[in-house]
Structures are given as structure tokens and as C-alpha cells.
Write a protein that binds this DNA or RNA. Sequence first.
DNA 1: ATTATAGTTGAATGTGTATTCAATTGTCAA
DNA 2: TTGACAATTGAATACACATTCAACTATAAT
Lengths: 120, 120
Amino acid sequence: MVCKIEMCDCNVIHKEIVEAVKEQIPEDRRISVISEFYKIFSDSTKLKILWALDISEMCVCDLAVLVNVTKSAISHQLKILKEANLVKFRKEGKNVYYSLSDNCVKEIIEKGVIHTINNM
Amino acid sequence: MVCKIEMCDCNVIHKEIVEAVKEQIPEDRRISVISEFYKIFSDSTKLKILWALDISEMCVCDLAVLVNVTKSAISHQLKILKEANLVKFRKEGKNVYYSLSDNCVKEIIEKGVIHTINNM
DNA sequence: ATTATAGTTGAATGTGTATTCAATTGTCAA
DNA sequence: TTGACAATTGAATACACATTCAACTATAAT
């Protein structure tokens, strides 16, 4: 029997299994949210920034030197980390000091444990 | 004092902190390996494949219908998952049935726990 | 006020990669 | 042996995104 679903170039070999899996698998929206979350940690620069902040609060300039990219690059990445609520910051004079937003982030960095995955 | 490190457009604000972090932060190689690992889960298609296999063994055609992409696309992604040792397969006639390689992968998919991160 | 520096932002660029298409292999059935 | 179909593979394409550059804001010091 030929596949009924568009965009597909094949037959359904095991209709029952596909249907069963379709019912149990998380909805697309949730899978998207989770993959987006993993995406943040899939970039060396972001991961290095997070790991650095796990050790110490740092300003943009410090991070730029540490990671060896421009301040601009760091700033762009910090923006993404901010939007994901992974880092927080405080301003002091001309400097902006960044740090991890909470201990959940520490757990992810140090142990690879994403507790919040059940709420995504 | 101007930054001594190439590629950097800024001064070192807190030399002591940068030096201390540099000592404690994992080496670049390890950060690369970890980010590469996260990268696999940062793609909706791969994540959906893994989640499907967490529910049931499936062949390429089944997965193509489920995810709604070509068999070719699934096959390409399965190759990456194979190389990462996340899935295994068995051949039966014309079909190739894929499944998760072990329970560690189940833990990652279901609970977001990457036990192996300490060995990376 | 003026200068210097920290940080942010938007545009442009280059790279990486997911997907599709077309061609190929391998297996089964007629 | 021929036809049908599952799966793989490589090339081409399109898109996403990390980085840089340049321009700008803001703060501090002289």
C-alpha cells in the first residue's frame, strides 16, 4: 500500500507500529523546544562561556580574552544565553558582570543533568 | 594595559580571574567533544528519531513516514546516530531495523541525563 | 567638554549542515 | 532473470548561525 502522507517517498511497512509511536511520541512543539535547548550547548563558544561563569563571575572583556574572540561575538552569544535564562548580569560602572542564573545551570554544565526537561 | 592575546579587541579587565578560570576550565578538546555530543540532540529530526526508537524498534521507511521526510534524509541522520553509538540495527530481508543502542540513551531522551559526560 | 573604554547592535560574510534528488546496491518474489 | 522495493550514498541546494566589522551608547576620568 502506498503511503498516504505527503512529502514521503515510501510505503508504510508497519502501519501499526507507526500509529502506536505517533500516539506516544511527544508533540512536535515539545520536541522543538527541547532541541532548541540542546542547541545552546552544542556551540563551543557558548559552552565555554557557561563553564567559565560556572567558575567565576566575569565581564564581557574577560570572556572575550578567555575565549579568544571579539567582545562583539561574546555579547551576541550572551544575549542568547540571557534569553534562555541561563545567565544573569549586574552592571557596575562601565562593566557588565555575568554569572549563571541558578544552580540548575550548574548541574547541566558540571553533570550533564537537565532537570527541567520534563517541563519543556 | 592592552591585551596580549591575538584576535582580541579589548583589554584584560581582571587578569587574575581570567588566569584562574583558564586553569580550571576544561581543555578546548573536551569542550569540543561535549558540544559535538549536544549537537546531535539539537536537531528536531534526530531527536524525533531517537524518541521514536525509545518507544519501538523501527525500520527506515517507518521513520520516514513518522517524521515526514524522505528515506534518504532519515538514512543520513541514522548514519550520524550510528557513528555516535546512539543506535544499533539489525537486517531482516530488505528491511533494516533500528533501535537505541543502550539504556544510557534512554536516560538522555526520557530524563535529560547524560551520565557519560564525565568521561568525555 | 573631551577622551577613552566597556558593551551593544545591525549588517555582511563565511561556514556548516539538513534535506532532496538521482543513482546505486541488495534482497525478495514472480 | 526481471521487476519491485528498502536502504544507502554522493552531489547540489538552501538555510541557519557564528563571527567580524563598523557604528553607536554609556560611563568614567582628566
